[in-house]
Design a binder for these strands. Structure first.
Length: 111
DNA sequence: CAGATGACGCCGA
DNA sequence: CTCGGCGCCATCT
C-alpha cells in the first residue's frame, strides 16, 4: 500500500506551503498547480503527508470543508482572518488564484 | 478480479 | 440556491 509518486507529493506540499496566511485554495486549484491528475489525490496526499504544511488553507471549491476537519480547520482559518459564514467560507473573497502575482497586480480588495 | 470508499468537482434538475 | 448523480484516481475489502 505504497502511495503516490514522491515527486508529486513534494510538488503538492510545495504549493500548499506557498499559500499565504489569510488566503485559501481549492483542492482542484492545488491539483492544477502541482500537476496532480485529480483533486482527490490532493486530499489523499494531504491526509498522509500534509501534517507539516498549512493543510487548513485547502478546502472545497464551494467553500465547505470535510466534516471531520470542520472544527479544527475553521478555527485555524478564523485565526488568520478567514471568516466562515457558518460552515461555509466565501471563496470569492479569500481564494488565492495567483501564486506568482505580477508586479502591480494586487489581490482583490478584502472588503 | 469486482465493488466500495474518500480531506473532490461539475452539471443538470 | 440546494440536491442528486456521475466522473475522477488510488487504495482497501
Amino acid at each position: 500500500m505504497d502511495h503516490v509518486d514522491d515527486a508529486l507529493i513534494e510538488r503538492v506540499r510545495e504549493v500548499v506551503a506557498s499559500i499565504p496566511a489569510g488566503r485559501v485554495l481549492a483542492y482542484g486549484d492545488v491539483a492544477e498547480l502541482a500537476g496532480a491528475p485529480s483533486p482527490r489525490l490532493v486530499g489523499r496526499i494531504l491526509a498522509v503527508d500534509g501534517h507539516d504544511v498549512p493543510w487548513h488553507r485547502v478546502l472545497r471549491s464551494d467553500g465547505t470543508v470535510a466534516a471531520h476537519l470542520a472544527t479544527d480547520q475553521l478555527a485555524r482559518l478564523r485565526a488568520e482572518g478567514v471568516l466562515a459564514d457558518g460552515q461555509r467560507i466565501d471563496m470569492r473573497r479569500y481564494r488565492w488564484t495567483d501564486p506568482f502575482p505580477e508586479p502591480g497586480d494586487d489581490q482583490p480588495a478584502l472588503w
